[in-house]
Amino acid sequence: MKPLIDNFPDLLKSALLTLELTIFSILIGLLIGLIFSLMRISKIKILYFFSYYYSFVFRGTPLFVQIFIIYFGLAQLEFIRDSILWAVLKKPYWCAIIAFALNTGAYTSEIFRSGFEKIDKNLVEAANSLGLSNLKTFLTITLPIAIKRSLPAYGNEMILMLKGTSLASTVTLLDLTGTAKYIISTHFNPVEVFIFVGSIYLFFTFLIHTFIKYLERKFRYY
């Protein structure tokens, strides 16, 4: 127990970092996911294909590979290091957020796409016949129903993203997993440290779970 108590301030800080990475990635990923899911159901071919291949690539490769390419790979290219992008890509924090957001954005776009696609066309026609504009129909009918239908799968994706942030430790960030590895490498006690850190992840998962349940209740009328 002593190593855990000695390193408690570090563990607390790293738990906050994990939470921060998760929340930022999910928020940016949500925006990306919404935009790309709309592109997927759009009738404009180029938008459709762009969205399709984005999702294909980011769902088809491991997150670990993505974060490595963004962090170590891009840094090898001289024109990237000379460009203004380097100010952002220089920082492991932003590299991690970019990788996580792009990854979860791809999954989110698929989740919302299926939510949009399953909507009964009769509902939209009914709304139109009542004189609602296309935008109003989208905002008050299509979007809420799509969100409601996507919630269970989206909750799953949020939990996966939370656990995915453990890869931040591979790019020098001291998130929960990184700090756990540091404590283990100095005190050589993997079991107790991983059990402790695992329960913090479990607690965060519980928070996400509760949040999704709350949303499901809120959207129950749709």
Binding site: A75, Q76, R81, K90, T172, L174
Partner: peptide, 18 residues
Amino acid sequence: VWTYKTQDEVNLDLASGR
């Protein structure tokens, strides 16, 4: 202090100026 899994990665980030 930034920590890495391997020395290779330290060298890479040193060379890239991070």
